[in-house]
């Protein structure tokens, strides 16, 4: 079976849908578009979703991915869901700090911490 890149894995735990990026680099425009389609379909599977994005494997991304995250967050908040990011490596976190997206996104150390206090999704 051909590998689909970029790959994501989805796990349902308690009140959260945990989506992990499995690639180290998220760069190419076509990959980012494919990611957007995959993530949007996860969001739209439920009326309301608590989505945790796990960046544990990600070592490099560009501003195009930040744009993707903004689009995802808008869609989630339109549907009264919650978005939390976690496991962001220090170099990637620096990109969030420079762009002040640390103010926009809820960022946690790990999945466990990000899962705390999420309300019941519909």
């Amino acid at each position: 079976m051909a590998a689909i890149k970029p790959s994501i894995s989805v796990e349902y735990a308690g009140n959260a849908t945990i989506l992990s990026f499995t690639d180290e680099k998220i760069l190419e425009e076509k990959d980012i578009k494919a990611l957007q389609e995959s993530i949007m379909s996860v969001i739209e599977q439920a009326e309301r979703v608590n989505l945790i994005l796990d960046f544990g494997n990600v070592r490099f991304l560009s501003s195009a991915v930040l744009g993707l995250l903004i689009r995802i967050s808008k869609r989630i908040y339109e549907r009264d869901g919650q978005l939390r990011l976690c496991n962001i490596n220090p170099k990637i976190y620096e990109i969030f700090k420079i762009t002040r997206l640390t103010k926009t996104f809820d960022i946690y150390n790990d999945v466990e911490e990000a899962s705390e206090g999420l309300s019941q999704p519909n």
């Binding site: 501003s63 930040l66 744009g67 808008k74 420079i98 762009t99 002040r100 103010k103 926009t104």
Partner: peptide
């Protein structure tokens, strides 16, 4: 600008 998807390339 903080909520726009684009426009961060020059800043970086």
């Amino acid at each position: 600008g903080l909520y726009e998807p684009g426009g961060r390339g020059l800043l970086l």
